[in-house]
Amino acid sequence: MIEMEVVYSRPESFTPTTTHYCPGCTHGTAHRLVAEVLDEMGIREKAIGVAPVGCSVFAYDYFNHDFVEAAHGRAPAMATGIKRVRPNNTVYTYQGDGDLASIGMAEIVHAAIRGENITVIFINNAIYGMTGGQMAPTTLPGMRTTSSPGGRDVETMGYPVRMSEMLSTIDGTSYAVRRSLHNPANVRKSKKAIRRAFEVQERGMGFAMVELLSSCPTNLKFTPQQALDFVGDQMVSYYPLGDYKVAPEVKALKV
């Protein structure tokens, strides 16, 4: 007998709310993957999200679980406070690159140093989205932004920072990987990494971060597909995808 079965439907960890993201923005994709993982692991009811300041500032409107909204860059500290007093909850931050790699550099590095048992979803879109396309710490060399109108000159504006590599040097980091959202195969790999990053927390294995190369079609002045192509062509070559730190016990995890 032939029946129609549902192979994919909107995750339950989502609220029935239309996001405010621009069409084709992969913030939405990243959200969806987190929601799918929370569903699959059955941990929605104990999840506490920490939203950043950035385009995903309203992330809490889209997830059907408890959420707090941090100050710009401070999500890892806030998540630390929550996790330390509510160790049985699943606590994760969701942060952009300005948030995590610029203003919040101290907070993320020290959360990693402490091996804080939280999960970090890090959206690297090489730009400040919310404030209108200024240069981010991750903006590629030569890339034009509203605050690097002549292109990022690394001599005066510094070099793009590779967070996964950097955090991988820290003993407290259990899991630091970079994935990309630019095509279906990579979206699937991203989801697996997110799943693993949450499993790390569930098993008390410490600090886990997934860096996701992401697109900002609006500020890059691209169509959604061109923006994904930019991620796949330009960003991936500066930010190689891969596993930068997978602690042995994390490697042994069957996910």
Binding site: T80, G81, A106, E107
Partner: peptide, 10 residues
């Protein structure tokens, strides 16, 4: 900065 944001979280 870290300390007070932890207080905020808790």
């Amino acid at each position: 900065i870290g300390a007070i944001h932890m207080v905020y979280g808790a």
